[in-house]
Design a protein around this nucleic acid. Structure first.
Lengths: 156, 156
DNA sequence: TTAATCTGGTTTTAATATGCAACTCTATTA
DNA sequence: TAATAGAGTTGCATATTAAAACCAGATTAA
């Protein structure tokens, strides 16, 4: 049977997964962040079948994560570039990468090191922070359904 | 043909997606973070088919994201609880949720508000930070393959 | 103590999705 | 003009998914 879709779920995680929650999409976004733009480059770097790549690129373009740009110099050549929405997946991808590095380290290779372009220093682990900037875990938070009118101290 | 697997990819994102990169796994983890532990509760909250839920729970247990705990009071009842590895997906899930809230807001519902249990304040957006704690985007970083011997200033 | 129910699963079946290879079409290059 | 590259599309065999039926051990209900 068909895969279930979550477009109209009222859970934003479900809706997000609907757009980038399959095996390939986030990898495509990742490579786009690393600089890949061309169909053939995605195909070779990822080892993905061309029809699947077509489908995923089209879906990502439909969802506004990528945009398809005609690089017209020579005719019908295209580039797929991240939109702001796509670039905004950066924390997701990095959090996932750090989780993978921590819990499923590659046996033979050192993890890639991401560094600040100006300082050359490694970036920090992505963490969830409270209003004071202190890291919090899942145990430190609760879910409030209220739209947060004025940030009360009590639990409402 | 079979889905392609990334167990032995030297990309940690690919390996991470191999464990939690399907449509359901992260949603299961999300609900586990919200407190769900029982098979039937997952099934009803997610609207997932039982065979798929079985498969995903087993895979998450195999991968060390969940652990299966026998709650023996009455016999064969089980709970699925997050391990530390599973809880460590918190930044990933939250980043994804915030991305979804920002770019695919629910037409009718206000996004859930996550708050610090002690202060009652909303948590901050997840962001990637450089060594100084300043937020960086994908454009502010570069990838270094070196294992970072002494944090040189030049691009190596 | 027999029947109904809950829980956590497995099996069956049909619909989809995936991966591969082959093919198309346009534009460049030899 | 032929060959090649980029970006797809199509056909087919196989895997995966979803829904629903079925199963088996415990619990409750009568």
């Amino acid at each position: 049977m068909a895969r279930k879709r979550f477009d109209d779920s009222n859970c934003s995680v479900a809706r997000a997964l609907n757009q980038v929650g399959d095996w390939w999409s986030l990898l495509i976004v990742l490579h786009a962040m690393y600089g890949t733009r061309r169909f053939v480059d995605f195909q070779q770097e990822l080892g993905i079948a061309k029809n699947i790549l077509c489908d995923r690129l089209a879906r990502l373009v439909d969802n506004g994560v990528l945009k398809r740009v005609e690089v017209g110099e020579h005719g019908s050549r295209f580039e797929y570039r991240l939109t702001e929405k796509g670039r905004d997946l950066f924390p997701v991808v990095i959090a996932l990468r750090q989780w993978g590095d921590k819990w499923n380290p590659s046996p033979d290779e050192a993890p890639l090191d991401l560094r600040d372009r100006v300082t050359g220093q490694s970036i920090q682990p992505v963490q969830v922070q409270n209003a004071e900037g202190e890291p919090v875990t899942v145990r430190d938070v609760f879910v409030s359904k209220e739209p947060m009118p004025g940030s009360k101290k009590d639990s409402a």
